[in-house]
Amino acid sequence: MAEKKIRILLAQFPLENHNRGLIAVAGLLRDAGMEVILLGNAVSNRIIDTAIQEDVDVVGISTYCGGELALGKELMKVAEKKGIKDRTAFVLGGIFPPSDAPKLEAIGFSGTFPPSASREEIIAGVKAAAAAKK
């Protein structure tokens, strides 16, 4: 019997320019036994469409250039509209003002990972986010 595997989509908002963080996280999640779907830069509509088609447990957003709160809200709005808010978890990592972390959680990101987050913290955070949606 096949075991239930965690599927996660990794994406960035359109203006993000650095993808090293996303690639590093993709590698460590793969090594933790997850199936990681890479999308790269995309608008909210495409991120949510992809999350639907791939039936991922978690959507992970990598952010560096700011504006993550506004764009995060937009992403959640699309997720709500397209009906995946209750079946998909959202997490976010990268560089953002520490004071934004509670606000991000309030709008629906169940995990936020600052640059200091360790490999173990990221893996555990993703697993917890996925488990909360099953």
């Binding site: 595997k5 590698g27 793969r30 933790a32 997850m34 199936e35 890479l38 790269g40 992809t50």
Partner: peptide, 11 residues
């Protein structure tokens, strides 16, 4: 080895 995968075609 880890049974994980990077699915990167979509990009």
């Amino acid at each position: 080895f880890t049974h994980g995968a990077i699915l990167g075609d979509r990009i």
